[in-house]
Design a protein around this nucleic acid. Sequence first.
DNA 1: CGTATCCTGACC
DNA 2: GGTCAGGATACG
Length: 261
Amino acid sequence: MPELPEVESAAVIARAAAVGKTLAALRALHPSQARGLPSESANAVVGDTVTAIERRGKHQLIRLSSGQVLHVHFRMTGDWLVTAAGERIDPLVRVVLEFTDGTTLGLHDSRALSSVRLHAAGENPLPALGPEATGASFDAAYLRTALAGRRGAIKVALLDQRVVAGLGNIYAAEALWVAALDPRIRASSLGVVRLTRLVAGIRRTLAKAMRTTGRYVDRGTSARFHVYDRAGQPCRRCARSIRRITQGARSTYFCPGCQKR
DNA sequence: CGTATCCTGACC
DNA sequence: GGTCAGGATACG
């Protein structure tokens, strides 16, 4: 589920559930999670208190009183699931933070592709990331520089977290529809006028997502989207049939009528 | 640059 | 039983 709005929403929930609490245990409940979080790492955080939870792009950093940091990425299907003391842990929870008061913060992830890694104090767990998609420094002038010399399509560039942090496949497509831009346009060929439209489209798309709860409800709720998962259905702006194509091994949905080259 | 890969679940 | 999926990275 998780692009910037969903991760932000999840981080708010995690903060309420974890900040100020002390870890009694950290458990990897799935083999693929245990690989990234060996028992030495898990043991190293016992007794630590959660001091803050930060979000950057789609990444979350759980800061601990010892200075260590748990770096969390939801990938495709991750989300937080909070339980009260004594409540059973959902079988799809892959990593669980158990607090001394008996409550837990669980990483719920059907596909188990999420990652949780422990970093020592002073390390920067984050990869190189562009500006926040919702931030003031993300504007047309920045994008012009960031996209200069990029040969690929604009849609693919928007998914590159080094260009802009927080966009994923759904909102990249949605934002291009709002901006009325063809996702196949070569990234470096966009001028300031169209880039300004694109930045506005991204801001509006993400702001709307934040308002409407910030969570994907389910697959099949394409009513919430202009183009995503709407192949064959009429465009809400020009009534042409929405198309689905493949770009960079991902699906792209767009309207061939009003999203212009 | 495109493609495979990590996983599981939902859907045809 | 095969295909596809909201992400990121390691390849060739």
